[in-house]
Simulated assay, not measured.
Amino acid sequence: MVISTTLQQEPLVVVCGADDNYAMPLAITLYTALIHLENNCTLYLYIIDGGISKKSKERLERVIDLEHVDIHLKWITPSDLESLKNLHTLPWITVASYLRLLIPDLLPEQFEKVIYLDCDLQVEANLKNLWDQPLGENALLAVQDLGTPYVSSPFGIAKYRELGLAPHAPYFNSGVLVINLKRWRAESVSQRVIQYLQEYSQDVRLGDQEGLNVVLANEWGRLDPKWNLISHIYFYDIWDESAYKEEIGAIKQELISKPYIFHFAGGSKPWQIGCVHPQQLVWIRYLQESRWFTPIESLLWHSQWFIRYYFWQIKVLIKKVVIKILIQKS
Rank of each mutant, 00 (worst) to 15 (best):
Leu84Lys: 09
Leu106Gln: 09
Tyr116Val: 00
Asn129His: 12
Leu84Val: 04
Leu117Trp: 05
Cys119Pro: 01
Val69Asn: 03
Leu87Cys: 06
Cys119Ser: 12
Tyr98Lys: 05
Gln122Ile: 05
Tyr116Phe: 14
Leu87Thr: 00
His88Ser: 12
Glu109Ile: 05
Gln122Phe: 12
Cys119His: 15
Ala125Arg: 13
Lys85Pro: 03
His88Lys: 15
Val69Ser: 04
Asn129Ser: 06
Lys113Gly: 00
Ala125Tyr: 11
Trp75Met: 08
Leu99Ser: 06
Val123Pro: 07
Lys85Tyr: 08
Leu81Val: 04
Cys119Asp: 08
Lys85Phe: 05
Tyr116Leu: 08
Arg100Ser: 06
Leu99Glu: 04
Pro104Arg: 12
Leu84Gly: 02
Asp105Ile: 00
Lys74Cys: 13
Val123Tyr: 10
Glu67Lys: 15
Ile103Ser: 01
Leu102Met: 11
Ser83Trp: 07
Asn126Pro: 03
Leu121Lys: 08
Glu112Cys: 07
Lys128Asn: 03
Leu121Asp: 00
His72Ala: 07
Ile115Leu: 15
Leu84His: 05
Ser97Tyr: 10
Leu130Tyr: 03
Ile93Leu: 15
Leu130Thr: 04
Gly136His: 09
Val63Arg: 15
Pro108Ile: 01
Lys74Gln: 10
Ile64Pro: 07
Leu87Gln: 06
Asp120Gln: 07
Ser79Ile: 06
Asp70Val: 12
Asp70Gln: 13
Lys113Thr: 02
Lys128Cys: 02
